[in-house]
Design a protein around this nucleic acid. Structure first.
Lengths: 155, 155
DNA sequence: CCTTGACCTCAATTTAAGTTGAGGTTTTAT
DNA sequence: ATAAAACCTCAACTTAAATTGAGGTCAAGG
């Protein structure tokens, strides 16, 4: 079982898993991706400093906001693994997230408002419907519908 | 080259691709997933009725809103492939989307407001920070941090 | 001491949403 | 009639984010 010392200076991978709610396999994975770090015991086992918990919390939070791990790597770059984030670090980082979040909210809100129009008009057959396929009447133009300027992910 | 008749009653896969902006390979894929349908020519080539364009527009729009294809399959279920969606169909469907969208916006907004608190306080070290790891002080409780009630995707 | 549970690495598998390519057939334009 | 452009199927590959398993090592308690 995981040892339950009062305040261990370093945490084993199992302890981190337990406290963060993140599976060991994912911790290994994050480490392989360079998102978190740990030093090793004499017997080659991972030993985490306490602030990895914060880092993981940040990581998972950003992830739940829809950021990909590579985006998160960027977000976390100013806070190198193993370094205790300063208040300024966090402020800067979180401000960046806020901006990204706001952009996302704005996009969704705009879309929602367009949909409100649809609800009133049953408009998929109308010309001004945001869900309408603009290219369907162009038939011979270069490129087809660019739906709402938000095509799903490419290659 | 794709034929460019004035108003063909049926569309080839290439025409649908061109008009919808969706690659042929993706159309095949959507068909394999049961999301769209087509009948076949005497020579076994796909022939789409016009309303497939609308269906695809709906599909891609929902996708851009962050719905997965299996969620979209649910959203489209009331409109069987090949059937012309009625205004009522569309209204009901879009109303459902709106609700899902609103939920997403609400979640993000709430999160953003929490982050605003963080920006002021540099609070990752504070007890009331939404980014704080609640389990870190529980150390012996059942399950670890459930970050903001929004854990990233499971298995 | 010595067993058992926690760890280790590395490779393979999973799911989603497609894309790419091989090898062969159908349509269409000349 | 024929050649080029589209189309067909099927299988394999891609990326992200992990999980699962095999085979072996470490550490803590009885």
């Amino acid at each position: 079982m995981a040892k339950a010392t009062d305040a261990p200076s370093f945490l084993s991978v199992g302890e981190v898993a337990e406290r963060s709610g993140v599976p060991v396999s994912a911790l290994h994975f994050y480490e392989a991706k360079g998102l978190i770090g740990a030093h090793r015991s004499s017997g080659n086992q991972r030993r985490y400093s306490r602030d990895v918990l914060r880092r993981i919390a940040i990581l998972r939070t950003a992830q739940s906001l829809g950021f990909s791990l590579s985006e998160i790597a960027g977000l976390l770059k100013p806070i190198p693994p193993g370094r205790q984030p300063t208040a300024a670090d966090v402020r800067a980082m979180v401000a960046g997230w806020r901006a990204a979040l706001q952009a996302r909210i704005d996009g969704l809100t705009e879309l929602r408002d367009k949909l409100d129009g649809c609800i009133g008009c049953g408009c998929l057959s109308h010309d001004d419907c945001p869900l309408r396929n603009p290219a369907d009447r162009l038939a011979a133009s270069g490129r087809g519908a660019v739906l709402l300027g938000q095509q799903p992910p490419g290659p």
